[in-house]
């Protein structure tokens, strides 16, 4: 537990020093700037999209960037010859990204409240963001395993966006019909959208239950059977195999 705390603190310190926090903050400011042009009622429809983007896409990019820096500077080698376990290392990435998404929730919610007086169901938003950010950190780690450089990570990221997120966005815009959109629930970003949207609109309870169960199960299965076992291979590759 102590080591996990050290890793989390260290990761936050590096996010700051490597200007990844700054980049994240700039993105948040863009969202706040966009929100300025919406009326309070319109904002309620728009704001879940901000949290969806942050907890899914921004999370994947941030975890990818930190893994890329650690790979480029070989620091992962040094961490893995210390008493840190693979589980602690990976879990620290999840914790940091969940906390980061939580910061987004606080920042955006405060900005929207003070700018437009917008409020929504924070008790449904926070657990949704936690589960979505955690699952997408694991997905981001998995995508990073298959990236040899930051460019190839971006390619993986774009493929993920097209395959998994674009249908969700099209459904949000009404381009994909309701009947077809029902099946999109098996796509993690769509499930994420359902969970996060519950902050501003009524969602069938079964969809919430399914959504949480699905993302949690997906995270556990991905971690247990793919991300954790392949981590040794990833480290092995990084030490010059």
């Amino acid at each position: 537990m102590d080591r996990l705390l050290v890793l989390v603190k260290g990761e936050f310190n590096r996010l700051n020093k490597y200007n990844l926090f700054t980049a994240h903050f700039v993105v948040l400011m863009v969202w706040v700037g966009l929100a300025w042009f919406f009326e309070a009622a319109e904002l309620k429809a728009f704001v879940p999209f901000i949290f969806l983007m942050d907890a899914t896409m921004m999370t994947i990019l941030l975890v990818g960037a930190t893994l890329f820096y650690e790979k480029q500077e070989h620091t992962i080698n040094s961490i893995m010859v210390s008493p840190v376990t693979g589980d602690q290392y990976l879990l620290s990435k999840v914790v940091v990204n969940v906390l980061n998404s939580f910061v987004t929730v606080v920042f955006i919610s405060a900005a929207l409240y003070f700018m437009k007086g917008v409020v929504y169901n924070y008790f449904l938003l926070v657990p949704a963001v936690v589960v979505v950010a955690a699952s997408h950190t694991i997905i981001g780690i998995w995508l990073s395993y298959h990236a040899k450089s930051f460019s190839s990570l971006l390619v993986n990221y774009i493929i993920y966006v097209f395959v998994f997120l674009l249908p969700t966005v099209l459904a949000m815009l009404g381009i994909i019909g309701e009947a077809a959109a029902r099946f999109l629930i098996v796509l993690p970003p769509d499930t994420a959208n359902i969970l996060i949207s519950a902050m501003v609109r009524e969602v069938d309870p079964w969809r919430l239950v399914f959504g949480y169960a699905y993302l949690i199960l997906l995270s556990v299965v991905l971690y247990r059977y793919i991300v954790r076992p392949w981590f040794d291979w990833y480290v092995m590759r990084e030490v010059g195999v």
Partner: peptide, 19 residues
């Protein structure tokens, strides 16, 4: 092997806390 944006001392302090 070091975190390039951290000072030498910050690098050592980080690794030191792992032991």
């Amino acid at each position: 092997i070091s975190f390039s944006k951290l000072t030498a001392m910050e690098n050592l302090e980080f690794f030191k806390k792992l032991y």
